[in-house]
Write a protein that binds this DNA or RNA. Sequence first.
DNA 1: TATAAATTTAACGTTAACGTCAAATTTATA
DNA 2: TATAAATTTGACGTTAACGTTAAATTTATA
Lengths: 146, 146
Amino acid sequence: MEELLKIDEVAKLSGLSKRTIRYYEEIGLLPPPPRSQGGTRLYTQDHVEFLKKITIAKEVLGFSLQELHHFLSLRDTLENQRADYKKVTEPRERKEKLIEIIHLLDDQLQMIEEKIHKIMSVQTELVTLRERARAAIVKIDEELSK
Amino acid sequence: MEELLKIDEVAKLSGLSKRTIRYYEEIGLLPPPPRSQGGTRLYTQDHVEFLKKITIAKEVLGFSLQELHHFLSLRDTLENQRADYKKVTEPRERKEKLIEIIHLLDDQLQMIEEKIHKIMSVQTELVTLRERARAAIVKIDEELSK
DNA sequence: TATAAATTTAACGTTAACGTCAAATTTATA
DNA sequence: TATAAATTTGACGTTAACGTTAAATTTATA
């Protein structure tokens, strides 16, 4: 029972604009969905999930769409370790590819660590600011109640 | 003993380009430094620190320069609680302003919480991917050693 | 089935955040 | 002090990531 969605629905569910959704397809980021007889795009819930994920990755990691693209191809390579790929490609070659992927993931994970560090430093700074503001209010209240 | 820096030094220390530094001044983000007789900009270490901070905030929070601008004016308002400002402005008015600032900080801090959440979700996903890749390598090795 | 509402492609427009280049001046160096 | 190296202002260029508009179809509704 595949629920088919049209672009307007997908836009509402994903929080992206219709233009953006088509654009992501245009640049090869979103897999092209099947079409109806007349050519209307017919999406599934999977597309929505996918869009949500890359939106988060973009927001949070500050990835450009190019970088996202590159990153997603990694995931695909991993997926392809199953099924057909195995039969076609040399084990040795597959292993090389996997090692490459792991290195890239290590890099990304390190970058994420750094980002978390930085964001927390900003966080503590803001908390400090808030404390100062609160203290200033207390002072004013003291002044006013004299 | 104020060490004075010229723009090329500041660029190297901050990691930004000279163009970017002038641009930040142009849009009012970076306070204009004093000039030499001939008009050359003379910075201090404080400028460098400032640039580093806003670079982190921009990177990490995904702030636009506009948003940064707005945000920095907050901090300035807080700074101004001291000194002259106090003598000129009504306590009641100052308190209003402070409450406004606190609300804004609360919002920002909430946003940061959410970002940290999201980034960690991406993190765990990447770790999972890496695990899968490692497992796949083990499988291949087993194949090869048969 | 006529009409309204939604979708498609195509093309041009927009904005932020700088990059790049040039010509004039200033500062550093031999 | 002559020459090289750096800085300044000004202006135009660039790129990513869409927005907007229009004209042609397609899909939904009364």
